[in-house]
Design a binder for these strands. Structure first.
Lengths: 241, 241
DNA sequence: GCTGATGATTTGTGATCACATTACTTCGGC
DNA sequence: GCCGAAGTAATGTGATCACAAATCATCAGC
């Protein structure tokens, strides 16, 4: 049984839809609520959870083999990060940001991410080698996912590229803000994959890598801004879908 | 008994320090966890909770007359918003952002708030009257708090001014990001009051009001940016304190 | 065939308890 | 007087239960 994620119009109350089975975690000495949180978070980031789908505390708890309490902690943490929504009556849903909210989220990304990129470039300017290599790997994974038609892998590799870059900035507070945004755009970003190919896309990741190796923080920031803008355009298109 | 907020080096385990008594809420039909959340959040925003102070779930619960469960929900929500911190062992404390984190937070404010101000100006351009009046009231309260030596009132009025302005932008996603930042800077902002007067301060709120009534979004955004910059300078000074 | 009410079920919330871990206090030794 | 160890108290976590509210399914009526 999955996460008890059901679409808004499921067949029966007990029926489970979407997201495949999740192993009962079990092992590490991490608190249970953290494990549930990470599990849900990863699915959200990758867009594995359908926007509009609903989950239940008991369902989440059962699917990960824990009690209701840690499931509650995890879900409410995600709700606090706006990665999940609770209706007034307490129903938990994967949010479906409307066009206006999506615009806001990308506006915020456009403001914050170039700054993070600039800081990363400055911080890593001494030793760009390892960073470039890691970014190249993420970008390869991204292209591979596109080639393989793996929408989930595409979203994961794309956020991975940005996350790897910004990690070099060593700015935890800014990073937390950006991650919160990603969590919110995650579910819809998956749909973006569907419109890829309907537009001529420019590879700003390549531009970013070039700027980084040229030790050009401003150029890197510009490339990231363009990349976010392109993503915003795709998202706007996908949202209308 | 307060919120069981104890400084890091309190007299005895059961002893309560800081933050005065809080009425047991009780009334409205809001869920208990929300009431606890709002109560803690308000104190955090106003800087009523000393940075570095520690709270306990049982203490919070007892002071508001609820059980441990809603206290947990509220505290963890605040932790998710980085308004509270949990040590690896689970101790809850009011975070004391270091200079570097403070710089990040103000950098984010500097990026996001002018945008929010610009949007507010555009959205309210048809009817600036009521907004101007509300902002003027907040600004009067701010000056009154300064005159009265009320540090808590100062912080409340200052964030109130910004909150009132940005509310006109009707951008909930952006607003949520900014509020998360305020929650993080809140405790240290109280200290800012201590260094006011040691510097010649310019009243950018006045400039902002003028730009708003002149229907000048760019000018308003500039004024807000300057205001944030000034706040950053004060905070940097206060942090060294 | 469709809409409306009614009943059973599921849902989140809050409370309480046991437990492992951590922090604190106290007391002994140098 | 200061430091370190042992015992004690306190803390967050997780589980379980009762309950009120809301949802969904079923079915009667038109």
């Amino acid at each position: 049984m999955g996460l008890s994620t059901t679409l808004t119009k499921p067949g029966r109350p007990g029926e489970e839809a979407g997201a495949g089975p999740t192993e009962p975690v079990a092992d590490s000495r991490q608190p249970a609520n953290e494990q549930v949180y990470l599990s849900l978070r990863a699915r959200l980031l990758e867009g594995a959870l359908e926007p509009g789908a609903s989950l239940t505390l008991r369902g989440v708890a059962a699917s990960l083999g824990v009690s209701m309490t840690p499931a509650r902690e995890a879900v409410r943490k995600l709700v606090a990060e706006r990665a999940l929504t609770m209706t007034g009556s307490g129903r938990i849903l994967v949010p479906l940001p409307n066009a206006s909210e999506l615009e806001e989220l990308f506006a915020a990304r456009r403001l914050l991410e170039p700054e993070l990129a600039r800081r990363a470039a400055k911080a890593a300017s001494k030793r760009v080698g390892p960073l470039l290599k890691a970014l190249q790997a993420q970008d390869d994974a991204l292209e591979a996912a596109i080639g393989a038609g793996d929408a989930q892998g595409y979203v994961r590799a794309n956020t991975g590229f940005h996350a790897t870059l910004y990690a070099a900035a060593e700015a935890p507070a800014l990073m937390a803000l950006v991650e919160s945004i990603w969590l919110q755009t995650g579910p819809t970003m998956r749909r973006v994959y569907g419109v890829i190919g309907t537009r001529a896309l420019q590879d700003f990741h390549e531009t970013a890598l070039a700027a980084l190796s040229d030790d050009d923080p401003a150029g890197l920031a510009r490339a990231i801004r363009d990349d976010v803008d392109q993503g915003a355009a795709l998202a706007a298109e996908a949202a209308a879908l």
